[in-house]
Simulated scan of single mutants.
Amino acid sequence: MASATSKVAAPGPALNGIKRDEMPLQDRQPLEDLRMHRSRIAIDLKARTGFDCRSSIAQIEQDIAGR
């Protein structure tokens, strides 16, 4: 079980640096898979009790949005 101080690593710049319209169609699937994975992580973190995961959730949601 994770401790109260654990954080989820967020590859913000990695997702932000990739522009969907500049990617060949076959290369988009790995990015979409990563976005889906991060969405599942955010859902899991929101469901947890006893931990303050707000900053991790906010970072993940920013990454998903591509900001």
Rank of each mutant, 00 (worst) to 15 (best):
P13V: 01
Q29N: 04
E61N: 07
R35Q: 14
G50H: 07
M1G: 08
V8G: 00
P30Y: 05
I57K: 00
A9P: 01
R54N: 14
S39V: 10
D21F: 13
G17T: 05
T49W: 01
T49E: 11
I60C: 03
P30G: 11
R35H: 08
V8F: 03
Q29I: 04
P11G: 12
A14N: 02
M23Q: 14
P24S: 06
R20D: 13
A10Q: 01
C53M: 11
S6K: 05
I60T: 03
Q29W: 03
C53V: 15
G12W: 11
L25V: 15
S39G: 13
M36V: 15
R35S: 10
K7I: 05
S56K: 00
G50N: 08
Q62C: 05
I41C: 05
L34D: 13
D27C: 12
R20P: 04
S39T: 12
K7R: 15
D63Y: 03
A2G: 02
D27E: 10
S39F: 04
I57Q: 00
A10N: 06
D27W: 11
H37I: 07
L15Q: 08
I64L: 14
A10L: 02
G66V: 08
E61F: 02
A4Y: 06
L31D: 02
S56R: 00
I43R: 02
G66W: 10
I18L: 15
A9E: 03
D21Q: 14
P11W: 04
S55M: 12
A2K: 09
R40I: 03
I64Q: 11
R48C: 06
R35W: 05
A4D: 11
A9V: 01
R28L: 13
K46S: 02
S56H: 00
F51V: 02
E22P: 00
Q62M: 08
G12C: 10
I57C: 00
I43P: 00
A47H: 00
G50P: 03
C53L: 13
R35D: 10
R20F: 12
L31W: 09
A14V: 04
F51H: 06
P24W: 06
S6G: 03
R20Y: 14
Q62F: 01
D52P: 01
V8W: 00
P30H: 10
M36K: 15
L25W: 06
A4C: 11
A9N: 03
M23F: 09
G17A: 06
A2L: 11
D21S: 15
R20A: 14
I60R: 01
D52V: 05
D21R: 14
S3R: 14
T49V: 10
D44K: 01
R54H: 09
P13Q: 06
V8P: 00
G50S: 08
S3I: 08
P11A: 09
A14C: 08
R40D: 09
R38A: 07
S6N: 10
S55Q: 15
I43V: 04
I43S: 02
R35A: 10
L45N: 00
Q62T: 08
C53T: 15
G12D: 09
R67W: 10
E61A: 05
L34H: 14
M23W: 09
D21W: 13
V8D: 01
R28P: 04
L15N: 07
S56D: 13
L45E: 01
S55N: 14
D27V: 08
A58W: 01
D63R: 04
E22S: 07
R54C: 05
K19R: 15
